[in-house]
Every structure is written in C-alpha cells, then in structure tokens.
Write a protein that binds this DNA or RNA. Structure first.
Lengths: 169, 169
DNA sequence: AGAAAATATATGACTTGTCACGTATAATTT
DNA sequence: AAATTATACGTGACAAGTCATATATTTTCT
C-alpha cells in the first residue's frame, strides 16, 4: 500500500461547501437542531418529551382521538405513540379506553393532570413559535411549507419510478 | 369523571390542517421521509447504510480526513462516525490510522474496496439528486437552502435569549 | 353465514442522532 | 518546566423514528 496521502484542507473546504447546498444533508441537520431546541424549550416547561408535548397539545386542541388519529396529525408512525402512551397514562396525563363502536381502537383522552402539564408547557412553546415568526414572515413560512409539500411528494414517490426516469436535464 | 367525550371529526381535521403549516411538525416528517427514501435508493446500490454512503462519498470527493472533519462536513455528531467507522474498517471500506502530527486524531482513508462500494452506489444516488432537480429549479433550491440557513441560525440561538425576547408582534 | 381481506394496535429489532463523561494528547498560560 | 485548558476520540444511555410481524377485531365478498 502506498504511503498515506496528506489531508488536503482546500478539498475539505470545497466538499463542505458542496454539502452545504445539498438538501439531503441540510434536512437531517436542521431537523436534529430543531429536536434539540424543542427539548431545551420543554425543559423550561415541565420537562416533557417531544412526543409527550405533541400529544398533549393535539389532545388539548382537538379533544379525544385514537392512536391512529394522533399519528396522522403528527405525521409519524403509530408505533411511536403506541409506546409512549402507556407511560403517559402511568404519569396520569391521559386515559386510554377501548373504543365502544370499534373495539380495535384505543381512545386517548386528556386528563386534568394532562391539561395542567399542557398549560405549563404551552406558553413556553408559544414563545418558540412567536420567536420563529420574528425570523420569518408569514409569506416566507408559506413558501417554506410549500417547498416541504413538494419535497414530501417527491420523497414518497416509489424509488423504481425515479430510477427509471429519463433524466432529461 | 364525566362520560367519554366523543371524537369530533371536524376538530381533528382542523387540527391536522393547523399542524400542516407548522414547521416544527413538517420538518421531522420531511426528514423521516428523506431517510426512508435514501435507504431505499441505497438498497439498489449495494445496501450501504446512510452513514456509510455519506462517508464513502466524502472520502471519495475530498480524500483522507479525520473523524472530526467527517462529522463537520456531514453536520452531525462525531460519535456517530466514531461508532460507524470501525465497522466500515472491518468491511474493508476504509483504513483508520492515528495522526502522525497529532496523535489524538484518526485519519480515515478510502480503500480500493471502499472506492468500489462508492462506485456501485454513486450512480444510483446521482439519479436521486437528478430526480430532485426535476422537481425543483436551481433557483428554488437556493431559496430553500437559504431558508434552512436562517432556520439553522434560529435553532442554534440560546433558548434563554428567545424566552426573554419581547414578542413584539 | 362463513371466508377472506382490511384495519388498529402492540412489540422486537434496527438506524440516526444527541448528550455527558472519560481518557489521551496538544496547546497555552504562568 | 509545570499546570491549566482545549481538543479528538470512544462509549454508555437515551430519544425519535422506521419496518416487519403478530393478534384481535371489522368489513367485505361469496
């Protein structure tokens, strides 16, 4: 084997710059930062986990619903809720009752204690959203969301389709 | 306790709509979808993990570098690489040698086998980026990246600052 | 009515990512 | 030169998320 090639600082810098404009690199990083920031905010508001916060918020806003409904609104996998909810029930934040009409379903309902936990975290999280709105105008947010809509569509297209695609450009 | 409130389909729909325009909900969902799509593409190109692919790509583009350099370019935590690299070395994709000038560092270098694995996955992943460029113009990508830059800045500001902020609006 | 298909939930195994902390080495200060 | 501080890496513990598979219940089809 040949002797070690040296580290080339210029090539690294160039590579870093390339990756800076790669959506598939920036998206994970932005998400990770968002998760960290979310957790830090929540530490100031009763130390809920992110999943717990989202769930309390949704239940507060929309009333009782099934696990699937929660997963749907949160755009996440039901298994995440399936695992988190028993703990939330044990903490007294929610009740879980089997559906009367459809016995497959679990109806999740906010308890008073859950509403209290929500009330404690809510103003902190409202501040977060308010702070975001000082960085981005409503119009910008709308464009941003529009991009995410289109990106979502793209990301959910079957890989086979995309691979077969004639790359015209 | 009062009897169970019924599920209110209209409220659920409204809540779903609200969350649809919440950046903090859409970002995780978009990232998760991106990760799934990335993995599916990689299954067509030698079954690398996402971390492995990123690492082979960076090493191919920029030559040998330290673990910290890799983490830096990928905008991720060094511990992720610290765990992934020994496995990549065992698979024969990279070598890890202690830095001569700075003995704290590990210099990661692509092997021939690593270059082969890269060459196998690269055209598939290039297709992915090409497909994305058919959905978004270069100008749109630039705006998108600009949003992500600004979002990153926001997400990295200390929570205390944001909480103390007078929310003027 | 009975069989087949679809749906709701639970659970094990896995990946990506963070943080905190420990250890070794290098750089800086006194 | 010695002591302090900073940096690079490794590792344990955790969170958020996916997927596949199993089970129970509904719905649909014959």
């Amino acid at each position: 084997m040949s002797e070690d090639a040296p580290i080339d600082a210029k090539r690294l810098q160039k590579r870093r710059a390339q990756e800076d404009s790669n959506i598939f690199v920036r998206l994970p990083a932005a998400y990770a930062a968002s998760r960290v920031q979310g957790r830090r905010f929540l530490q100031h508001g009763g130390d809920l986990s992110i999943v717990e916060w989202r769930t309390l918020w949704d239940l507060h806003e929309a009333g009782p619903m099934t696990i699937r409904d929660l997963a749907n609104i949160q755009r996440t996998d039901h298994s995440l809720l399936s695992r988190a909810l028993p703990q939330m029930r044990d903490k007294g934040y929610v009740t879980m009752t089997r559906g009367l009409e459809d016995a497959r379903q679990i109806i999740v309902t906010l308890t008073e204690k859950g509403a209290d936990a929500y009330a404690k975290a809510a103003p902190i999280m409202a501040r977060r959203r308010a702070a975001l709105r000082e960085e981005f105008t409503d119009a910008e947010i709308a464009v941003f969301i529009g991009f995410l809509d289109r990106l979502d569509d793209f990301l959910r297209r079957p890989v086979e389709d995309l691979l077969q695609m004639e790359t015209v450009k």
